[in-house]
């Protein structure tokens, strides 16, 4: 999100530190214990970089293309909905398909969806897009945060089916879950090569110091 593109994301100061914040869609409620900031009579929720990888990327200077308020987002690996809640703030008039397979975290995801009205919880395995092919529609933004060995394969499979031609995608790679014995930098290089075969442009962004051995890849221009 470039500065000033979507009015629902703002960079602001909190306790003397620069933070990103999103305008709350369900004011008065903190989703995962983040602070609430009020700016010009509107309530913003702090986007905590230690909890959300996209926020960590933004803090590290990642420049994402604009997400408009009626964008469609496919989020793979939604878990209990920490990052999903912020994306739901940003695309206030759009839809988010939040795919998550593990049942015990989806309880909070479903109650989040009920409170907000633009999240569709999809309780399926992201590894098998054919299972939810009839649920998800073409998306402007595909984000994946699954710590799996074959996460790149899952990502490409989903992008091929659900990413719009004008859309962009992002994947968060956890080096430690791909191969524990290799150096993270080598893994990131391999992943980058793999992604470049399918996308015109791939921009990496490491998430130190917020997340250890993680790297975000912003992928632009699908084939």
């Amino acid at each position: 999100m470039q500065k000033g593109s979507n009015p629902r994301v703002k960079q602001t100061m909190l306790k003397g530190k620069k933070v990103f914040a999103t305008e709350s869609l369900a004011p008065g409620k903190s989703v995962y214990g983040e602070s609430l900031i009020s700016l010009n009579g509107k309530e913003y929720r702090e986007w905590v970089p230690f909890r959300s990888k996209i926020a960590a990327g933004l803090m590290n200077g990642l420049r994402m293309p604009e997400l408009s308020m009626d964008s469609v987002v496919l989020y793979l690996g939604a878990a209990s909905g920490t990052t999903v809640s912020h994306i739901s703030d940003i695309v206030s008039n759009g839809l988010i398909f939040a795919v998550e397979v593990s049942p015990h975290v989806t309880y909070s995801l479903i109650s989040l969806a009920e409170a907000r009205g633009n999240i569709v919880p999809v309780l399926e395995d992201a590894n098998k897009p054919e299972e939810y092919f009839n649920t998800v529609i073409a998306s402007d933004f595909v984000f994946q945060d699954i710590a799996q060995k074959n996460q790149v394969e899952i990502f490409l499979k989903n992008c091929r089916l659900f990413l719009k031609q004008s859309g962009f995608a992002m994947i968060s790679i956890k080096a430690r879950s791909i191969d524990i014995s290799k150096k993270p930098r080598r893994i990131f290089e391999e992943v980058r090569k793999e992604l470049e075969q399918r996308f015109r442009e791939v921009k990496p962004c490491t998430l130190e110091p917020f997340q250890k051995d993680h790297c975000l890849f912003l992928c632009l221009g699908r084939e």
Binding site: A113, P121, V122
Partner: peptide, 20 residues
């Protein structure tokens, strides 16, 4: 399909609850 997004969201929650 996107024009009926409210319906999709409502129905999606219903299906998810049933499934879980």
């Amino acid at each position: 399909v996107f024009k009926e997004k409210d319906k999709i969201a409502r129905k999606g929650i219903e299906i998810a609850k049933e499934k879980i």
